[in-house]
């Protein structure tokens, strides 16, 4: 009998190199259902690569990923597709399908991957678009949407697949400052709804208010991890705090 104290997703000893350049050194992380973990750290520190290894968009050289007790075998293509559709991924630059309307972007996965009937898929897609506040933009093409709207469509697209875990790779980094809020509020709502999430971000304030745990990643290693209060408390002598202070100086937040 599984309990909620058991992790839904376990990442064990993941290592990844490109040529002689090692991006991830033996990184492990586990997350329980409903938890939100936020990865921060300098650019090039491996945050994005790490998230991409979790759903095998980047194949790890070593290590394993276990989702809901099932250790994924990356050489089995079918298992890989099954794993990916259970792990929602939000990208920095949205990656919407440019030739499809917002509605069709959300529908297509349900129809082609889950094998749902068109009518049921449309209903569900409209519900998801409504959830991210874009019901009235359903028939717009990506080229007609703002960055914030595109990111919200991509969130709806991921949600429509009923993911067990969501991975968010700097979801607001490509957005104009005035559009960041609308995406953050959608993510915040997801968290309130109990969605399990791992998010990489540079928005320290957002990370702090959302995260159950902050993970500070640098040079392909997890350097520190702990609750926001521990790592970011006044006077805490942590790398995380140094880093955040530096970002604040530059004018991040």
């Amino acid at each position: 009998m599984k309990t909620d104290t058991e992790p839904i997703l376990e990442i064990n000893h993941v290592t990844k190199s490109f040529g002689t350049n090692t991006i991830l050194h033996d990184v492990s992380l586990s997350i329980k259902k409903g938890e939100i973990k936020v990865i921060i750290g300098p650019s090039g520190g491996g945050k994005s690569t790490f998230l991409q290894t979790v759903n095998f968009l980047v194949m790890p050289d070593k290590g394993s990923i276990t989702l809901a007790g099932n250790r994924v075998n990356p050489s089995d293509k079918r298992e890989l597709c099954t794993h990916r559709r259970q792990v929602g991924m939000i990208f920095q630059d949205f990656n919407l399908f440019d030739h499809l309307t917002a509605l069709a972007n959300v529908e297509i996965g349900m129809i082609k991957v889950l094998g749902m009937k068109k009518k049921a898929a449309t209903e569900r897609a409209m519900a998801e678009l409504d959830r991210v506040g874009l019901k009235d933009q359903a028939n717009q093409y990506p080229a007609q949407l703002s960055g914030g709207q595109k990111q919200r469509v991509s969130i709806a697209r991921a949600l429509a697949m009923d993911p067990r875990v969501m991975l968010l790779d700097e979801p607001t980094s490509a957005l104009d400052p005035e559009l960041i809020g609308e995406v953050q509020s959608v993510i915040r709502d997801l968290g309130k709804g109990g969605m399990t999430m791992i998010m990489a971000t540079h928005q320290i304030g957002f990370a702090r208010s959302l995260a159950d745990e902050i993970i500070f990643m640098e040079k392909g290693r997890i350097v520190e991890q702990g609750s926001p209060d521990e790592l970011l408390a006044q006077g805490a002598a942590t790398r995380t705090r140094d880093f955040c202070a530096r970002i604040a100086e530059i004018g991040g937040e």
């Binding site: 293509k77 919407l96 399908f97 440019d98 030739h99 991957v113």
Partner: peptide, 25 residues
């Protein structure tokens, strides 16, 4: 290229990605 990652991330096979995402564009 990002759209290919987007398609794989929702569970598309390589063939589905080519047929439903790449070729129509």
């Amino acid at each position: 290229q990002g759209q290919l990652a987007g398609a794989r991330a929702i569970g598309f096979t390589q063939l589905q990605t080519v047929v439903h995402v790449v070729l129509p564009q």
